[in-house]
Design a protein around this nucleic acid. Structure first.
Length: 336
DNA sequence: AATTTCACG
DNA sequence: ACGTACGTGAAATTA
């Protein structure tokens, strides 16, 4: 439709039509129509029509498989079907999620989520006193970051400043560049670069930790999680800047993402041991990276809530307290 | 079989 | 000038 002069192409030479590309075409009505169609098709083909076919003839339930040796960071992955990517972000998506229900009327769905686990791990590894103190005092981490980065008192942080700070906090964990952040914030590279610079001035320990991670990786060509899982980074000394850049971002991200995986695995082992020891009817049924989902026997509500929270918070001791949010409802959506 | 897109954390 | 934020899996399309 000649909406732009030089349309972006994919590496195989096709026109790129991903969501981020379409949204930069301007506000032609075709864009929202295509994206609406895509959303509907995704939900129809991947969930609404696929999942019912996966119902077991033996017990009427859907069973995923977890793979323990696929993800390079030590995370689990879920397949056949993937139950770690059930929709939640859009209204129609949430309808799909609400179809996941307990086994019978004596049960409820319970979800227990680690709050900001990766940022807490980063603060702890970096020994950043400001960020550690923010978590210890239970302050909102994104607002705290916004106050520091934009140099205003906490009460003067606007929703837009908080939104940007949140993107920065995530970007940091991924080793984001000014370009990446500007794309994500839909702002100029200049502003993105200024925000990042300001971030590193306010949180010097985080900057030091990131540099140390890369330098250590250069020495031994691997990085490690808190429990010693290694990710080998054989490209870390590559002379190709793009290749080396990937390895450097992995050097920052893998210990953090992987340590979060270590921690939830310890919690899962302790929770399962406890459920069996106590002969409880509640079952741990899903893991979604920082969340555990339970088919909760109603009469066990109080004890399970208390013990699961405790076992998740205390799986491993680090410099920062772990916070866990528990929700209970009559389906997976309501449990959040 | 490879690529592209998009669902999740 | 180029490429550019981490980790996955599934469906549809393209080659």
């Amino acid at each position: 439709m000649k909406l732009v002069d030089k349309p972006k192409k994919t590496k195989s030479g096709q026109y790129a039509t991903g969501e981020d590309v379409l949204l930069k075409l301007g506000d032609h009505e075709i864009v929202s129509l295509i994206l609406e169609y895509r959303e509907n098709e995704k939900l129809r083909s991947t969930y609404v029509e696929a999942l019912p076919k996966m119902i077991s003839q033996f017990d009427g339930r859907i069973h995923t498989d977890y793979r323990q040796a696929v993800a390079a960071t030590g995370r689990l992955s879920s397949n056949n079907p993937n139950l770690q990517n059930i929709p939640i972000r859009t209204e129609k998506g949430r309808q799909v999620r609400s179809a996941f229900v307990p086994r019978n009327k004596d049960y409820l769905f319970m979800s227990a989520d680690y709050s900001q686990i990766e940022l807490r791990i980063a603060a702890s590894f970096a020994k950043d006193e400001i960020m550690i103190e923010a978590f210890r005092s239970g302050r909102d981490i994104h607002s705290t970051t916004a106050a520091k980065v934009f140099k205003v008192p906490l009460e003067k942080v606007t929703p837009d400043m908080r939104r940007k700070a949140k993107e920065v906090n995530f970007g940091i964990l991924y080793g984001s560049t000014a370009f990446g952040l500007s794309q994500n914030l839909q702002t100029s590279r200049k502003e993105a670069a200024e925000i990042i610079e300001s971030y590193f001035t306010e949180f010097p320990a985080i900057k030091r930790y990131m540099d140390d991670s890369i330098n250590q990786a250069r020495e031994v060509e691997y990085v490690e999680t808190i429990l010693g899982r290694r990710r080998y980074l054989r490209d870390i000394n590559s002379r190709n800047v793009t290749t080396r850049g990937f390895a450097e971002r992995n050097a920052i991200n893998a210990p953090i993402q992987g340590s979060a995986a270590d921690i939830i695995k310890i919690a899962m082992i302790n929770i399962q041991r406890w459920l069996e020891k106590e002969n409880l009817k509640t079952r741990m049924i899903l893991q979604v990276h920082d969340e555990l989902v339970f088919d909760l026997f109603k009469e066990e509500k109080e004890i399970v809530t208390e013990r699961v929270t405790h076992l998740m918070k205390n799986a491993i001791r680090i410099e920062v307290p772990m916070d866990v949010e528990v929700g209970i409802g009559k389906n997976w959506l309501e449990a959040h």
